[in-house]
């Protein structure tokens, strides 16, 4: 399990995301429903389609949840979307 505190670029705290590594699922706990919905869509896309854009390239084979780089890639993607994901706790 890995927990991230999520803030926007201005530093406003939006909530937290928990990644359940065994189930390969994200659990979203946000203060705002709108923000939670946006984040849900985003993370569902990562889980289903994988992460295709890294750096300034599109990968032919997206990074999917079974790839050890998935979580790091998801973190980076969130920062690309204007979120600040700060690692909070690792417990597995």
């Amino acid at each position: 399990m890995k927990i991230f505190n999520i803030k926007d670029l201005s530093g406003k705290e939006l909530g937290k995301i928990t990644y359940l590594s065994e189930e390969k699922k994200f659990k979203i706990d946000f203060f705002s429903n709108d923000e939670a919905e946006k984040m849900t869509l985003l993370l569902e896309e990562y889980l289903s389609q994988g992460i295709k854009l890294i750096g300034d390239i599109y990968l032919d084979e997206p990074i999917k949840p079974d790839n050890p780089l998935f979580l790091s890639s998801a973190e980076e993607q969130l920062s690309r979307m204007g979120y600040i994901a700060t690692y909070k706790k690792f417990d597995n």
């Binding site: 869509l41 985003l42 896309e45 990562y46 389609q49 295709k52 854009l53 750096g55 300034d56 599109y58 993607q77 920062s79 690309r80 979307m81 204007g82």
Partner: peptide
């Protein structure tokens, strides 16, 4: 862009900063 992958449209600005 791959238009089926809606998530990364918003991240385009990060590409600008990378370049």
């Amino acid at each position: 862009v791959d238009t089926s992958n809606k998530g990364f449209f918003k991240s385009f600005y990060r590409l600008i900063s990378h370049e």
